[in-house]
């Protein structure tokens, strides 16, 4: 039995969540075959997936796949599952992976589960734990179809390096123009920044920061910590920060090791996006702010005073 893993990359590097997907697949048992679409990742990076448990990596060298066209991707993954005889496809939840997974599951007549948070229990059937109610609860579900498509959340598997390298092979699915009927005609993407859903540390600012001109200190702190920056919903609604930084129920859900919230009250809809963070630090001048109840560490103080001090302290500790 072989498990197929769809891996995604950013700027030529395999994403960390995709490495977790490879580790997840390896933990299921059986051979792990990874597949990468497009021409933007070089062979040595792909072979490196062996270090995480893949024995083989399929690459689909087709320029048209450098853009994440949902239908075409689903078609490729469907053909790869069939041709490799894989019963299971594992991938990371992402803006591309999740919509693609749904279509593959229907093509394969497979059970589909997204937002999986832990390794499966295969002692009796195939059971997984998934996050529901926007992180406020979990459901343990049994996947009842013979084939399965599993989309995992960040941190569902702990990365282990086992050494070794994987054989890289070309895979040439049949694709027609109709697979590219939905055209991506423009991309507007911040480059170089640390991506919010992938980040190990996130520094987020809320309305307590008073205005966009005060984000400098957030960015300084983020830079010192090599963190991504986020914000609360009103902050992106008023346009102080771009929409893709908005964290919470209706925005990005993050699960970093450390989440630092500055001048955010801690409304339940904001908490919904951050409650799977490992540690939460809250800076708020109101010691009654609800966010403190969800925090591991709290500083009741004025952000304009605390944040520069914190950045200085970190610099000093370096």
């Amino acid at each position: 039995m072989a498990t197929l893993v769809f891996v995604e990359s950013a700027e030529g590097k395999i994403k960390k969540t995709s490495l977790e997907a490879v580790v997840y697949a390896a933990a299921i048992g059986g051979d792990v075959i990874a597949i990468a679409l497009g021409t933007e990742v070089d062979d040595s990076e792909l072979a490196g997936l062996g270090n995480y448990g893949a024995i083989k990596v399929l690459k689909v060298s087709d320029d048209r796949l450098n853009q994440g066209v949902i239908q075409a991707y689903a078609n490729v993954l469907n053909q790869a599952m069939t041709s490799m005889g894989s019963d299971i496809l594992v991938l990371a939840n992402s803006s591309l992976g999740t919509p693609v997974s749904a279509r593959v599951a229907i093509k394969q007549d497979a059970s589909l589960v997204t937002n999986v948070t832990e390794l499966p229990d295969t002692s009796n059937g195939f059971k997984v734990k998934r996050s529901i109610y926007t992180g406020k609860a979990f459901a343990n579900v049994e996947l009842t179809k013979a084939r399965k498509v599993i989309a995992i959340k960040k941190n569902a598997a702990e990365i282990k390096e086992i050494g070794g390298s994987a054989a890289v092979e070309e895979f040439s699915p049949e694709l027609t123009d109709s697979d590219f009927e939905v055209a991506i005609t423009g991309v507007d993407k911040a480059t170089g920044d640390i991506l919010l859903p992938e980040a190990e540390i996130v520094v987020s600012g809320g309305r307590g920061l008073k205005g966009p001109e005060n984000w400098g200190m957030i960015e300084d702190l983020a830079q010192e910590l090599e963190a991504a920056t986020g914000c609360s919903k009103p902050v992106s609604d008023i346009g102080w920060r771009p929409h893709h930084e908005h964290v919470g129920q209706t925005g990005v859900k993050v699960s970093p090791t450390l989440y630092i919230a500055v001048g955010i009250s801690g409304a339940i809809q904001h908490l919904a996006g951050v409650n799977s963070s490992k540690y939460i630090v809250v800076v708020n001048k109101d010691e009654e702010a609800p966010f403190f109840k969800a925090a591991d560490y709290g500083i009741a103080g004025d952000a304009f005073d605390v944040i520069p001090k914190l950045t200085e302290a970190l610099k000093a500790a370096r």
Partner: peptide
């Protein structure tokens, strides 16, 4: 259907917050 529910589960309760004095932010670094 393609899946069946075994059971629901709530996340473990969060421990109490540790407050740090605003004048001693360096404690957080450690």
């Amino acid at each position: 259907v393609s899946s069946t529910l075994e059971k629901y589960e709530l996340p473990p309760a969060k421990g109490a917050v540790k407050m740090i004095d605003a004048d001693k932010v360096s404690e957080l670094v450690d």
